[in-house]
């Protein structure tokens, strides 16, 4: 009996809502495509590079983001009216509280051992409060994109 059911399934479309999961990653409608590309402006890419301190190394990096956004856009077709967001599966459990005792410390040596550069017992960084240079002055792939801003695909 079960075998029959299974083979029937094999023939039927499987997901009642919006298409197959594997197919979710395939070509989206032209409208969605255009909409996504509108979102991915040079300004946005620059903003992300600043916030994440990670760069889009090449065009592939930019396309990766575009594809990621397109893929995520599929969420919008799902009806979530009246549904509460779920932070964690443990949302109904309450937080464990620790007693106010000193149980750790004096690890300076161990901690500093792992740091590439230290000065006496301090971690050391270059001068702070100097933001990443503007797009024009920065060595980033995005700089090369600028002249073709209007031609962005």
């Amino acid at each position: 009996m079960w075998v029959r059911r299974v083979s029937a399934l094999a023939r039927a479309a499987f997901c009642s809502q919006s298409g197959s999961p594997a197919g979710l990653s395939s070509a989206s409608s032209p409208r969605e495509e255009g909409g996504c590309r509108e979102k991915v402006t040079l300004e946005l890419l620059d903003h992300l590079e600043h916030l994440a301190l990670v760069d889009f190394r090449d065009q592939e990096g930019v396309e990766r983001l575009q594809k990621a956004i397109e893929f995520a856009d599929q969420l919008h077709s799902i009806n979530t009216d009246g549904i509460q967001p779920m932070d964690s599966v443990l949302e109904d459990r309450c937080l464990y509280l620790r007693e106010d005792k000193v149980t750790e410390g004096n690890f300076a040596e161990e901690l500093l051992k792992n740091a590439n550069q230290t000065v006496e017992e301090y971690f050391v960084a270059p001068p702070g409060n100097i933001p990443l240079p503007q797009l024009e002055d920065r060595d980033t792939f995005l700089q090369k994109k600028k002249p073709e801003a209007e031609d962005l695909p």
Partner: peptide, 21 residues
């Protein structure tokens, strides 16, 4: 006595990085 999310001590003056978990 100890920090918000860890068991290292809260103290004003101490050798650098000695109160770090």
């Amino acid at each position: 006595n100890s920090k918000l999310f860890s068991g290292s001590q809260v103290k004003f003056a101490a050798p650098p990085n000695s109160l770090v978990s």
